[in-house]
Design a protein around this nucleic acid. Structure first.
Length: 420
RNA sequence: GGAGAGAUGGCUGAGUGGCUGAAGGCGCCGGUCUCGAAAACCGGUAUAUGCAUACGCAUAUCGCGGGUUCGAAUCCCGCUCUCUCCGCCA
């Protein structure tokens, strides 16, 4: 959520920033609602202050209230109730208006309304001219991927990994978690996967993106679409102690996404599925450090691709292509020789204070200082099925076997996947 | 699922209708003392909103929501969460 205070102070600034994303925000409506809100607060406060004064006098003088006082105070109480009623309606409308508005892009985010305006920052030295069989052929033949079984158990866009295929994924996840916790200083978290509505609102996934989320009707809980949601909820409503920032968390969880907005796209293989594993990095930082934290996280995620020997590139998303809660995003894409395309395996964003404000997550910079909103950053480190695809397709040998990256062998106990 | 207990400030813990935004203690911050420190003593220590250039003033908040009352942390109703015991269960 954007700052109401700041919008009212400088409406045009917000309008301009949001237009860059292709949005036409109802800024005028917000400003009008806010001035009505202030007016109502003021009127109710006058009545309340008066009532408090009279009641206190009665108490101090240890007497019964007079008939006139009772009549008058009852009338005041009635007015207060009415004002509060309208105030709560105005507040609700203000919330409903603000919640679907996305974050404002940072100044250095490139202009553009769709992915064509994204900037390729750099491409690793690996080959991109290498072609091979697609993972759905290679892996099926090796007996490590069973798309039919996935479809039979759960339907389209579900899959089953078997044997060394399952082990490969587990090894990737374990290795990534180890790198993040042992080298990069993240604290490992194993969060709940069923999420309260309030927490989903806090991260920015609700109210706008309910179509892409799974939900249990009976308990009103939502399946995590990314661990970001849970890690972002970790401190909601809290005031983080002085000196505690930065907080760095990493979690491996499944991600559940309906993906029917993209029906018909990427239908083959496991590139786009309803349930996938992902290792997610998340940081809470002081606003002063959020830009450098973003660069660090990018470097950390790139390091993983590098050490897996994958060909990858870094893309800086344009204003129209960054996610709802993001102010600036880098994507990392790895080359899939089989399908001859770049696969997004990581998306690294700073959400500035957008999520903290929704969550009421605050921190105290120093003892006795007043609270501020921390910046939150998230980044995949990395998304598993796509890394799995790239590892399998890139490691494909002439004889149909697959050689896996050396960093993984301590986690697998073998270095090659052979035909059965 | 059944029975019971509880939820007050950073922590602990008083408080059954007005003098309680909230005693006392701990912690924290500042000061006195000291060569320095400890101890002792003095003072200060919640969040949010509105108004004001500002000193500041006002309002709200004692798990959450509603009700009674001139007035609610305190009385009534509903909910959530935590704890204990029983049942069930990976």
């Amino acid at each position: 959520m954007l700052s109401l205070e700041q919008i009212v102070r400088d409406p045009e600034n917000f309008r301009t920033a949001l237009v860059r994303r292709g949005e036409d925000p109802p800024i005028d409506k917000i400003v009008a609602l806010d001035s009505r809100r202030k007016e109502l607060i003021h009127l109710a406060d006058i009545d309340r202050a008066n009532r408090n004064r009279v009641s206190k006098a009665i108490g101090d003088e240890r007497r019964k209230p007079t008939t006139e006082e009772i009549t008058e105070m009852r009338a005041a109480g009635e007015r207060i109730k009415q004002l509060e009623l309208e105030l709560s309606a105005v507040f609700d409308e203000l919330q409903a208006t603000l919640l679907p508005i996305p974050n404002t892009p940072l100044a250095d985010v490139p202009d553009g309304l769709n992915e064509e305006s994204n900037l390729i920052e750099r491409t690793s030295t690996g080959k991109t001219d290498r072609h091979g069989n697609a993972h759905w052929d290679v892996a099926t033949k090796l007996g490590i991927l069973d798309l039919e079984a996935g479809a039979s158990i759960s339907g389209a866009r579900f899959y089953v990994l078997k044997g060394k295929g399952a082990r490969l994924q587990r090894a990737l996840a374990a290795w990534m978690l180890d790198v993040q916790t042992e080298e990069n200083g993240y604290l490992e978290i194993d969060p709940p996967l069923l999420i309260k509505q309030q927490t989903m609102v806090g991260s920015g996934n609700l109210p706008k993106f309910r179509d892409n989320l799974y939900r249990d009707e009976e308990t009103d809980l939502w399946l995590v679409p990314t661990a970001e949601v849970a890690l972002n909820g970790l401190h909601q409503g809290q005031i983080i102690d002085p000196g505690a920032l930065p907080l760095k968390y990493v979690a491996q969880t499944p991600s559940f996404r309906k993906e029917h907005t993209s029906a018909g796209r990427d239908v083959r293989g496991i590139k786009r599925v309803h349930q996938f594993e992902k290792v997610e990095m998340f940081r809470y930082v002081e606003p002063e450090h959020s830009e450098s934290a973003l660069e660090e996280m990018l470097t950390e995620a790139e390091g993983l691709c590098e050490r897996l020997g994958l060909t990858y590139r870094v893309v800086k998303l344009c204003a129209g292509d960054i996610g709802f809660q993001s102010a600036k995003t880098y994507d990392i894409e790895v080359w899939s020789p089989g399908s001859e395309e770049w696969l997004e395996v990581s998306s690294i964003s700073t959400c500035t204070d957008f999520q903290s404000r929704r969550n009421r997550t605050r921190y105290r910079p120093a003892d006795r200082a007043s609270t501020r909103l921390p910046h939150t950053l998230n980044g995949s480190g990395l998304a598993l099925p796509r890394v799995w695809i790239a590892v399998v397709e890139s490691g494909l040998q002439e004889d149909g076997s697959v050689v896996i990256p050396e960093v993984l062998t301590p986690y697998t106990g073998w270095s090659r996947i052979e035909s059965v």
